[in-house]
Design a protein around this nucleic acid. Structure first.
Lengths: 217, 217
DNA sequence: CAATTGGCATACGAAGCGTATGTTAATAGG
DNA sequence: CCTATTAACATACGCTTCGTATGCCAATTG
C-alpha cells in the first residue's frame, strides 16, 4: 500500500497548518510559540522545519490556505446576480465582511504583511485581486464603468474595503459604523460608473443601467 | 542651572528614538536588536527601558513622531490651493507620496499595525485621519461633495491611498504604475462629487466648480 | 552638607528560534 | 528476500534576544 504513507504525511501537514492557523489567529504570529502549537498538534518543531523550512514558511502556507478560501467565497458571491455591476458591488461587500473576521484580520491583514512583506507580491493574494480585476475588466468591456486600469481600480477598492473593515471591526458601535462606511463606499464606487448614458455593449443578461443610489442616508 | 540636566535627558530620548527609527525603518521591528541600536546611540537598553518601558513603547514613540511629521506636511499641502476640492485632492496625492517612503511604509503601515494593533485605535493616527476628515467636512458643508459621513469617506480614501502606494512602491515599473493608480484614484474620488450642478454654498474663495477630468489617460 | 531621587548601566534568568544530529520506517534495487 | 538509501519526523544543543532586578553615579533638595 502506498496511500497510507502519503496520507499520513498530508495529515501531518494539515495538522500543522491547522494548529498554526489557530495559534496565529488568536495569539498573533509573534506570540505564537512553535513548541506550543506543534505540541498541541501532537508533533514537535522537527516536523515543522521539515515541511515548511521555518516559521515564516508555515505562515505562508496558512495564508495561502485562507486566501484560497476567501477567493472561492468571492467567486461565488460575484457570480450570483446576473447584473455585472451588482455582482461587483456584492463582491466588494463580501470582501469587507470577510475582513471583519478576526482570523483574517489578524493573520492576513496585519501579521502577514509585517512578516512576509507587501501583499502585492504574494503569489496567493493576487488571486483575490485578480478576481476583482476580472470583474472590473468585464465591466469596462461592457461600458458600465469608465476607462480605468482594472487592476489599479481593484487595488484601490480592496484597499478601501480593508480599511473600512478594520474601522468597523474596531469601532465601539460596529453596526452604525458599518452603515456609514457602506454608504460612503457605494458613493465612492459610483465614481467608477460611466455616466454618459450610453452603454457601448450590453450587460451579461439584462442591459439595464446600474441603480445609482443618491439618497442622503 | 536646571537646563543642561533636562536637556541631556531630552537628548537621550531623542537619540533613542532616532536610532530606533533608523533600525526599525531599515531592518524592521522584529529584526532590530535593542542591544544593537541602543549601542549605536551610545547607550544601553537600560536607558530604553527607563524611558519607554519596553520595545513596543519605543515603537509607539517613533510612530508618534513620524505621524506628527506626516500630519504637518498634509496640513501644508491641503491649505495651499484656494479651491477646497483641489486642496483635498492634493492632500490625497501627498498621502500617497508619503506612503511611498520606505520608512513610513515599513514602520507605520506594516510593523505598526502588527505590533500595536489596528491604527484606528492609535491616538496619533487619528491626527492624519482627522485632518482628512475635516477637509471632507468643509467640502460637504460647501456642497461640493455628496452627503456622506466625512470620517467614513476619509478612512476609505486613506485606505485606497495606502494600498495604491504599496502597489506602486513594489511594482516593477513604479512610474507607469503610479500613473495608472492616480488616474483610477481620481476617478474614484469623483464619486464623492456632487454632480447636481448647484452649489448650496460657495467655496472658500472662488465658487468655481471643481474640474472633472474625464480624459481616458 | 546629607539624603534622596532620577537617569542610566550591568548582570542575570528565561524563552524562543534555527540547526545539527539521531532514529525509525518505507521504498528501491539486486 | 535482503540490503541500502532516503524520507519523516524527534531530540539536543547553542545562540540570540528580551525583560527584570540590581547597582552606581550625579544632580537636586531641604
Amino acid at each position: 500500500m502506498h496511500r497510507p504513507r502519503k496520507e499520513m504525511i498530508a495529515e501531518t501537514r494539515a495538522k500543522l497548518i491547522a494548529a498554526a492557523r489557530h495559534a496565529f489567529g488568536t495569539l498573533g504570529y509573534a506570540e505564537a510559540s512553535m513548541d506550543d502549537f506543534t505540541a498541541s498538534a501532537g508533533l514537535t518543531r522537527g516536523a515543522l522545519y521539515h515541511h515548511f523550512g521555518d516559521k515564516k514558511g508555515l505562515l505562508q502556507a496558512v495564508i495561502a490556505e485562507i486566501d484560497a478560501e476567501m477567493s472561492a467565497r468571492l467567486k461565488v458571491v460575484s457570480a450570483k446576480p446576473d447584473n455585472l455591476w451588482q455582482g461587483f458591488v456584492d463582491e466588494c461587500t463580501a470582501y469587507i465582511e470577510m475582513a471583519l473576521e478576526p482570523e483574517i484580520q489578524r493573520i492576513v491583514l496585519r501579521d502577514g504583511p509585517a512578516v512576509l512583506g507587501d501583499p502585492s507580491q504574494w503569489p496567493s493574494q493576487s488571486t483575490c485581486i485578480r478576481s476583482m480585476t476580472e470583474s472590473l475588466q468585464r465591466l469596462s468591456d461592457g461600458g458600465t464603468i469608465l476607462a480605468v486600469d482594472p487592476e489599479a481600480a481593484a487595488r484601490l477598492v480592496s484597499g478601501a474595503s480593508l480599511h473600512a473593515a478594520q474601522w468597523i471591526a474596531n469601532s465601539n458601535d460596529p453596526e452604525a459604523t458599518s452603515k456609514k462606511a457602506v454608504r460612503a463606499f457605494k458613493v465612492l464606487l459610483e465614481g467608477l460608473l460611466n455616466r454618459t448614458g450610453k452603454l457601448p455593449q450590453p450587460d451579461r443578461s439584462s442591459a439595464k443601467q446600474p441603480q445609482i443610489d443618491r439618497s442622503p442616508a
